[in-house]
Amino acid sequence: MSYKAKFRVWRGEGGEGRLEDFTVEVNEGEVVLDIIHRLQATQAPDLAVRWNCKAGKCGSCSMEINGKPRLGCMTRMSTFTEDETITVTPMRTFPVIKDLVTDVSFNYTKAREIPSFTPPADVKPGEYRMQQIDVERSQEFRKCIECFMCNNVCHVIRDHEENKPGFAGPRFLMRIAELDMHPYDVVDRKDSAQEEHGLGYCNITKCCTEVCPEHIKITDNALIPMKERVVDRKYDPLVWLGNKIFKRSGPKS
């Protein structure tokens, strides 16, 4: 069953722009990205949108739909009423290239700032032996499709551009947690998580978890455990004393 839907789509370049109104056909079973494509095909051939898999796995079509960060390809039109005006804007935290396409290079910069997985020097590739229970906690974080909606929604940088240099965002704080929990990673990441990557900025309001299309429990399973690890290292005198008494010198046990 088809109907005509009212859409408002943000159009512009380099930040300057406006919301443009469209009336467009919607068919049963379609998602918001289908409608954006129909707009391209019928009314706005120069409308820019980044997309790839249309299956919620590539993380390309992140946008804000009625103010909420969503994947265009995973937002069903059936979740809206027929008389509802649907507003589609680019992610607000990143610079706009054109229309719905943002420059997400902030995230690539942050990714490069995190030291990669570092196994012990005496363990060669092929010699890793890990039990499933030792790695399964980190495996949840590997579901990340890098849509960057968690970083987009995080108010630390969304509302405060000035925090960008010192804050990696939930996506990459989760990466730090993943590596810190890894049984074969030897880099001590607790001090840098707090001092260089801005874990202390996180006030655990869980918006990253709310918007994650892969339903990763970013806050509960990555950020808070990482905060607790930082407390072990920097703020808990009992742990410090225990390490001294029992001569626990290694960063990981």
Binding site: W10, G12, G14, G15, E16, G17, L19, E64, N66, G67, K68, E84, T87, T89, P90, R92, T93, F94, P95, V96, D103, E161, E162, K164
Partner: peptide, 21 residues
């Protein structure tokens, strides 16, 4: 248009605090 810094001006300039409905 509304902005506080050049970097911020590169973001989509949307006056509304939120577009959530």
């Amino acid at each position: 248009t509304a902005a506080d810094s050049p970097a911020r001006r590169q973001r989509a300039q949307i006056k509304e605090r939120t577009l959530r409905t």
